[in-house]
Design a protein around this nucleic acid. Structure first.
Lengths: 228, 228
DNA sequence: ATAATTACCTTACACCGTAAGGTAATCCTT
DNA sequence: AAGGATTACCTTACGGTGTAAGGTAATTAT
């Protein structure tokens, strides 16, 4: 009973034309596997399984798993939506960070990787450069631009991380608490907990973002006028 | 030439009285190893090496590595400084979150674990319960308490994570950019980058925290008066 | 002193990332 | 079309991981 699978591409001896491995195919499959099994359980062997190839074949296209993970970071950042040209200042920054949260939520398990890694790749730096440019172009000095950029980054990164932690596979403590225990032993968590569910996330996120952005807008208005 | 080490405790056949393994000793050693080798390289065998015992001996005190990690989370949260009784409302919350950042920065590599795990342990819930209580006790309704708590949490978690990522072992991309490349290809990152170093972190962190806390203070003042 | 219990160790297994080198498919040249 | 070169993929193997199963040594209880 030789293995026969009429679905999907199949390398090795199986019939069906060998679908060539490419960096893009590998990256896409990696995202799938990560979201299916969680970041901790993601391995080159499971990725190979998804790709119907051997683990070491991946190494012809990426010199190491770390290089692959870097490519996933870049691919994630490439998903960021463009900023409309005619959008004015504080809103430009808003759509960038709202977009960042959106791409993060699309891949909760992978975001756990992204959040603990410095965005050091050339492409990531290009993205960061554009964001920081938004602050400098409206007249903020370097120091203030740095502060405001990081401030917003903190908030959005923290928010997205917290939200993705709720969705990502794994990452929960070993002993879990029942609803009854919660009500009895942690009344405040229980009371507020009604507003911790996913349908409240948008409201919470935008509430904080609004606070930070309106402060930034106020600061921008105090800036010496810029030539048009 | 039998191994002889006059330092430290030594189990197994080495002379020197066998220092008994305890959960506390294991936890403390785990923190040390994690900060020495980084979260990814942390293993039960390296932990055993530090404790002069065998890996499996740890399993007598913790049923799994996951249980140990939970204990590390609890131990970290237990380090949070207490809130002085006489401190008024918005400042109470400030010291809690400032304290959270402080304990995070003390163990950068471990914080990478904490940040992607839900604080679900009984002790962690106790801590969270106390924080949320601060909002409810001054009169915020459950929904607002939930919002403000999470908002602040997002910011502080994101800030601490970003700062610890700068210190923690590992977590950088594979190909690193030189200073010259940075100046040429990423002028905005380069300009703002002067204000990204560690000595600027406090200023940035408190700037954002102040913005959020003063908004919260404003909201608190609009609350119907509470009986003393 | 002996039995029971606790604490720790040994061995082994399935899985991980990946170095080294082999084989098969493709392309390039004639 | 044939032969050679190059690329793409696979096989094997190594040292690492968490931990199940069961042994041994130390401590405590009787």
């Amino acid at each position: 009973m030789g293995r026969s699978s009429m679905s999907e591409a199949e390398n090795k001896t199986g019939k069906g034309a060998r679908v060539p491995l490419t960096p893009d195919r590998i990256v896409e499959a990696a995202f799938q596997v990560i979201e299916e099994v969680g970041l901790d359980e993601f391995s080159t062997r499971k990725l190979a399984l998804k790709l119907h190839c051997e683990a070491m074949s991946i190494y012809h296209h990426f010199p190491s798993k770390a290089h692959l993970m870097d490519a996933l970071v870049d691919s994630t950042l490439a998903d960021l939506p463009p900023v409309p040209d005619d959008l004015p200042f504080p809103e430009r920054v808003r759509v960038i960070f709202v977009g960042f949260r959106a791409v993060g939520l699309k891949r909760p398990s992978f975001f756990q990787f992204l959040s603990v890694h410095r965005l050091n790749t050339p492409f990531a730096l290009t993205v960061l450069d554009r964001i920081i440019a938004e602050f400098r172009i409206v007249g903020f000095d370097d120091r203030t631009a740095a502060h405001l950029f990081r401030m917003l980054g903190y908030y959005v990164m923290g928010a997205t991380l917290d939200e993705t932690n709720g969705y990502a596979k794994g990452g929960t403590s070993v002993q879990v608490i029942t609803e009854d225990d919660l009500r009895r032993d942690y009344p405040n968590v229980s009371a507020a907990g009604a507003y911790f569910s996913a349908e409240n996330w948008d409201a919470i996120f935008h509430r904080g973002l609004n606070i930070l952005l309106s402060e930034i807008e106020t600061l921008a208005r105090e800036l010496p006028a810029r030539k048009a």
